[in-house]
Nucleic acid binder design. Structure first.
Length: 407
RNA sequence: GGAGGGGUGGCCGAGCGGACGAAGGCGGCGGUCUUGAAAACCGCUGUGCCGUUUCCACGGCACCGGGGGUUCGAAUCCCUCCCCCUCCGCCA
C-alpha cells in the first residue's frame, strides 16, 4: 500500500513514477476521498468531544440524544468514505524505485555457454528418454500442466531441495515451513489480492487460498507486530509447493516443467530496516546467484523496467538460466525489493532505539524454483547418448554421477 | 463433527453500565540513596488517526480479539465473526 501522506505531499513525484508502470491509475479520486475523510473526522471528533463534556452534567439525557443522531450520521458517512478510500488504495501498485531502468537491462552474464557437437534436446524430450516424467498420467489424474516425477526425477528434485536449503542456511537464512492454505486477508497482505484473484486457487468451502509462492506466508509472518531495531535484518527461507492458475497463458511456453499449475520452490525472504534494504536486496540476489554458480549453470541477471514489475515490487532482478535445448534464457528466480509496500499492508513495523516506530522493508526472491532448475540441468548437462551428468555439487545428494534410463 | 470455557496494556491480572486508557503486580526507563552494585523508596511507561508547531513538543478523538447493535453514556448488555483452551468422536 502506498503512503497516503506521501501521496498528499508529493503528488507530482508519485504520479510521475507510477506512470512508468503504464497502467491506468487514478490518484485524483483518492485525494478527493482523503480530503473528505479528514473533513468528516474533524466534524465527528468535535461532536464526540461535546458529548463527553456534557455527559457528566444534567443535560446529558436531552442534549445527548440529539448529539447521538448527529454523530451517528457522520460516522456512517465517514465509514463509507474510508471503505472507498481503502478499496482504491489497495489497488494501487508499488511505486517503482529511482533505480528502475527505462527498459530491461542486462546487469551481467555469468558462466560459460557450452558448444555441443550433437543435436541438443529440450528438457521434456530428455525427460522422456530417461523416463523421469509422466505428464500424460499427471494429466489423467489432475488435468493438463501438472508435474509427475519418477525415479531420478524425484531424486534430483529432492537433491536440489537439500542443496538449496543447505547453501541458503550457510548464507544465513533460517529455514521455516509454513501453511500452504491461507486466509483471504493474508493474500491482501502481500498484494496478491484484490487484483489477482484469477491467478489463485481457492477452496471455496473454507474460504482459503492455496499459496502461489511462500512469499505470501513469509511476508505475513510478522503481521501486526512491532520488531525491535536490533532484531533486524531477519533472514528466512521456506520450501513450499506453489499453486498458480496461470489463467490466460495456455498455449505459450508451456512445455514440460516450465509453466505448471504446481511446482516447488525455496523462497528467500528478508525483513530489514529501511536504510538497509537496497544493500540487503543486492546481497539477496547474490545469494540466489551463488546457487547457480555452484551448479555451474550459465545465467544472466536482468533488471526489470517499471512496466514489468509485479504489483508489490519496487525493484526487481530476475535470474535467467541458459537453456541450450531451447536456445533461450529462462527465469529461475525473481528477486524483489518491496520497500515498505507490503509492510504497510501487513502492518509490520520496527521500533527504533529512540522509540520511534516505522514500517520495515521486505525483500523476497526465489532460491530457487526447483522444476525449472531441474529443466536447466537436464539441458545443460545432457550427453549425446541421452544420459545426463549430475552437477558436481549434487552428487552427494543424489548419490550417483550420471542419470540413465530406468525401467 | 458434538459439548463446554476463555480472549483486558510488553507480561500476569482486577474491573461486569458513567468518576476507566483502564486497579494491583511483574518487567522496562529515569531519579534518590550508595565508593560501585543490589535492596528500598519516588516518578514515568501503549498504539492509531486528526490538528497545531522551526525542532523539542503540544492539543483533540479513538482503541479492553474483529465487526455490528442497544443506550444520553459500553471493557462491562445483545448479535455475529475470528482465535485459544478442555472433554468426546473421527483421523495421517
Amino acid at each position: 500500500m502506498i503512503d497516503l501522506r506521501l501521496l498528499r505531499e508529493n503528488r507530482g513525484d508519485v504520479e510521475r513514477k507510477l506512470k512508468k508502470r503504464k497502467e491506468d491509475i487514478n490518484l485524483e479520486n483518492i485525494l478527493k476521498l482523503d480530503d473528505e475523510r479528514r473533513r468528516l473526522i474533524k466534524e465527528v471528533e468535535l461532536l464526540r468531544r461535546e458529548r463527553k463534556l456534557i455527559s457528566k452534567g444534567p443535560e446529558a439525557r436531552e442534549k445527548g440524544k440529539e448529539l447521538k443522531f448527529r454523530i451517528q450520521e457522520i460516522e456512517k458517512n465517514l465509514k463509507d468514505v474510508e471503505e472507498k478510500l481503502k478499496r482504491e488504495l489497495l489497488n494501487i501498485p508499488n511505486i517503482p524505485s529511482d533505480y528502475v531502468p527505462d527498459e530491461m537491462k542486462i546487469v551481467k552474464v555469468e558462466g560459460e555457454i557450452k558448444e555441443y557437437d550433437f543435436k541438443v534436446l529440450p528438457h521434456w524430450e530428455i525427460g522422456k528418454i530417461l523416463n523421469i516424467f509422466d505428464f500424460e498420467r499427471a494429466s489423467k489424474i489432475s488435468g493438463p500442466r501438472f508435474p509427475l516425477l519418477k525415479g531420478y526425477g524425484v531424486r534430483m528434485e529432492i537433491a536440489l531441495l537439500n542443496f538449496f536449503l543447505e547453501e541458503n542456511r550457510k548464507s544465513g537464512y533460517k529455514e521455516i515451513i509454513t501453511p500452504y492454505l491461507v486466509k483471504e486477508e493474508t493474500m491482501f497482505g502481500t498484494g496478491q489480492l484484490p487484483k489477482f484473484e484469477v491467478e489463485l486457487y481457492k477452496c471455496e468451502r473454507d474460504n482459503l487460498y492455496l499459496i502461489p509462492t511462500a512469499e505470501v506466508t513469509l511476508g505475513n509472518l510478522l503481521r501486526n507486530e512491532i520488531l525491535e531495531e536490533d532484531e533486524l535484518p531477519i533472514k528466512i527461507q521456506s520450501f513450499s509447493p506453489c499453486f498458480r492458475r496461470e489463467a490466460g497463458s495456455y498455449g505459450k511456453e508451456t512445455k514440460g516443467l516450465i509453466r505448471n499449475h504446481q511446482f516447488h520452490k525455496v523462497e528467500l525472504f528478508k525483513f530489514t530496516k529501511p536504510e538497509e534494504s537496497d544493500e540487503k536486496f543486492l546481497s539477496l540476489v547474490e545469494d540466489a546467484e551463488k546457487l547457480l554458480k555452484k551448479l555451474e549453470l550459465p545465467y544472466r541477471v536482468v533488471e526489470l523496467p517499471a512496466d514489468e514489475l509485479a504489483f508489490s515490487s519496487g525493484r526487481t532482478f530476475d535470474l535467467e538460466v541458459w537453456m541450450p535445448g531451447e536456445k533461450r534464457w529462462l527465469e529461475v528466480s525473481s528477486c524483489s525489493n518491496c520497500y515498505d509496500f507490503q509492510a504497510r499492508r501487513t502492518n509490520t513495523r520496527l521500533r527504533r532505539k529512540d522509540g520511534k516506530i516505522e514500517f520495515v522493508h521486505t525483500i523476497n526472491g526465489s532460491g530457487l524454483a526447483l522444476g525449472r532448475t531441474m529443466a536447466a540441468i537436464l539441458e545443460n548437462y545432457q550427453n549425446e547418448d541421452g544420459t545426463v551428468r549430475v552437477p558436481e555439487v549434487l552428487k552427494k545428494y543424489m548419490d550417483c554421477d550420471i542419470i540413465k534410463r530406468e525401467g
